[in-house]
Design a protein around this nucleic acid. Structure first.
Lengths: 224, 224
DNA sequence: AAAAACAATCTTGTATACAAAATACATATA
DNA sequence: TATATGTATTTTGTATACAAGATTGTTTTT
């Protein structure tokens, strides 16, 4: 007899979710560009589904902030302005500071070990100079910290805010001269969390986002 | 000839938005109770519309966190747990602190005057002991501060988080013994924003939410 | 030639129909 | 009696049809 049997949960993912993920990815990777209109019939034909799941996916994307809709006119990919990105990063900075403070209080020994590992793996990626790997390891590291807060709502919000800056995630990594700074900042964050030193941790996290903000805003100005 | 003509924007509000507002209000006021199922045909009959706008409204509510849906089973009003409320308030506390800090930097003279007025009106309501009025003036006061940050994203997030605790908004006001504290806290917040004293302002804002948290969590424990 | 009026087309908003999955209840079986 | 099985009902998921508003281009008028 079988004691426990777990079925793969996404065997029959609803179409609307498939469409949502597809469009989301297309927007984040820049395949669908800011300002581009999202026509329901057109997308439906392209993806081989009816308008209904397309509509539902578009609405979900709207709530996530990735698309903007005008009544009786339809949806378009949200335009990114310097102001909107600044707004996002300003909030993100505060929430990241909150994250590390809460992590100081609540992180477990296991998570702390994982965090140290993530730091090392990040340094390794930097040593290799592999930009894609650096980005991946950076996300992994921050993920561990958010998880350690145990706050689901905080996790959701940070995930969403990160999404808004996805297109620019390489900007602050590409500049090799910043690499040492990045490694140092991660180390400070890790050590201050280990020492339960909230003040140092939150200052480091704030600086960390500040640096990214600078790089991203610079990039947006260039796009004009 | 007419130079400018502004049409009332909600003359032809889409049905889905009407339904959304209706359901939202019903949930916030407790007419629809946590755990209650939201059946599409049933709601459609009740509101005199088809399933389509109901579905779209439900999805929007889901993204706002007010309802939870299980695939192939449907939606129900989100259940409020002590943990989930704690998560919400923990984030809210940090964002409110951010708000007053940004307000210190960016508030205009006009907004500062409005804020002072709002403080006085709040005190007036407290003097009268009118709980409903106190709640209204409290919201108005905080609204001015969020507006003063000029950060649209922050405004959206705080609005959403406030929504999650709407049902409990009277809890910390009903207790008359807390009234003096509330008035004092508002005054400290106002004055420190005027003096551009970020530290004092953010500490006061944090305490302000902490007090609410205490009252609300207490209330939730009693409900069990 | 410029502005207004009109018509054709496109696109969203809403309703409805049908398919598939989940649930509940009754019946059969050990 | 407890468990399993089968069936009817309910409910969501998706497709499609139709109505109404928005857009565009053309024609008409001044």
């Amino acid at each position: 007899m079988i004691d426990e049997l777990q079925m793969s949960p996404d065997t029959i993912l609803p179409l609307r979710d498939v469409v949502f993920e597809t469009l989301r990815k297309a927007i984040l990777t820049g395949e669908l560009k800011p300002g581009e209109r999202l026509l329901e019939i057109h997308l439906g034909k392209k993806l081989g589904v009816s308008r209904t799941p397309i509509r539902e996916a578009i609405h979900k994307l709207e709530l996530e902030g990735l698309v903007t809709t005008i009544p009786r006119r339809g949806a378009e990919v949200s335009r990114i302005t310097e102001k909107s990105m600044h707004d996002v990063l300003e909030v993100r900075r505060a929430l990241d500071a909150l994250c590390v403070e809460l992590a100081c209080e609540r992180i477990t020994k296991e998570e702390l070990t994982k965090l140290e590992m993530a730091c090392l793996e990040f340094e390794e990626a930097v040593a290799k100079g592999d930009v894609k790997m650096i980005a991946t390891k950076d996300v992994a590291l921050h993920d561990i910290i958010v998880q350690a807060t145990g706050n689901q709502r905080l996790l959701n919000l940070i995930t969403n805010l990160s999404e808004q800056m996805y297109r620019y995630r390489f900007e602050y990594i590409k500049d090799v001269s910043r690499h040492k700074k990045l490694v140092d900042e991660h180390r400070v964050i890790y050590e201050s969390i280990r020492n339960k030193d909230k003040k140092t941790a939150s200052e480091a996290a704030t600086r960390h986002i500040d640096n990214q903000m600078q790089a991203i805003i610079e990039r947006i100005r260039l796009e004009k």
